[in-house]
Simulated assay, not measured.
Amino acid sequence: MMTFSVPSMSCGKCTAKIETAVQEMDPTALLHFDLQARTVEVDSADGAEEVLGAIGKAGFDAQAA
């Protein structure tokens, strides 16, 4: 499980975009969002760099938390 900080994530629409982008890369990825903390936990077979790339593709800056 990897945790990422996504400071600009603030609503359900944001989480949906991130989830779609990550699951396009890895359809089996599981995501858990904490909007208050602005973090996302990702369980994926892909590595952190790939997940960060997918989050970036969705239009969000992120970093490992």
Rank of each mutant, 00 (worst) to 15 (best):
D26A: 02
M1H: 10
E24S: 13
F33D: 08
L31W: 01
T3P: 04
A16S: 15
L35P: 01
S10C: 11
E19C: 09
Q36M: 08
V40Q: 01
L35N: 00
E50V: 13
L31M: 13
E19T: 09
Q63T: 12
P7R: 06
Q63S: 14
G12Q: 13
H32E: 15
A16Q: 13
P27R: 03
G56F: 14
D34T: 09
L35C: 04
A29N: 02
G59P: 05
V22D: 00
H32W: 07
M9H: 00
Q36S: 15
D61P: 11
M25E: 10
T39H: 05
M25L: 13
A48P: 00
G56W: 15
G12R: 03
M2N: 01
A45V: 09
A54Q: 04
L35A: 05
H32F: 11
T39W: 02
L35V: 02
E24T: 12
F4C: 10
D61R: 11
Q63H: 12
E19L: 10
T3D: 02
A37F: 09
A21R: 12
V42D: 01
A65M: 11
K17V: 10
V6G: 01
V51E: 03
V22G: 04
A29K: 05
M9R: 03
A37I: 01
K13I: 12
K57D: 15
T3K: 06
S5P: 12
M1S: 13
Q63N: 10
C14A: 03
A65C: 15
R38I: 10
F60A: 10
D61Q: 11
A62D: 02
G59S: 09
L35D: 00
V40E: 08
T15H: 01
R38D: 05
A58Y: 00
A65P: 07
A58M: 03
Q36L: 06
G47P: 05
T20I: 05
I55C: 10
R38T: 11
A48D: 11
Q63L: 01
I55M: 09
T15F: 00
A37H: 09
E19V: 03
V51P: 00
Q36H: 08
K13M: 15
G53N: 05
A54M: 09
D34Y: 03
C14F: 05
A29H: 04
F4T: 03
L31N: 06
Q36C: 04
E19R: 12
M1F: 12
E41S: 14
G12H: 07
A62E: 08
T20R: 15
P7V: 07
S10L: 03
C11W: 10
P7S: 01
L31G: 06
H32S: 14
S44A: 09
A65V: 12
E41F: 05
C14Q: 05
L30V: 15
G47E: 04
F33N: 08
G53F: 03
Q23C: 09
D26R: 03
A58R: 00
T39V: 12
A64Y: 14
Q23G: 07
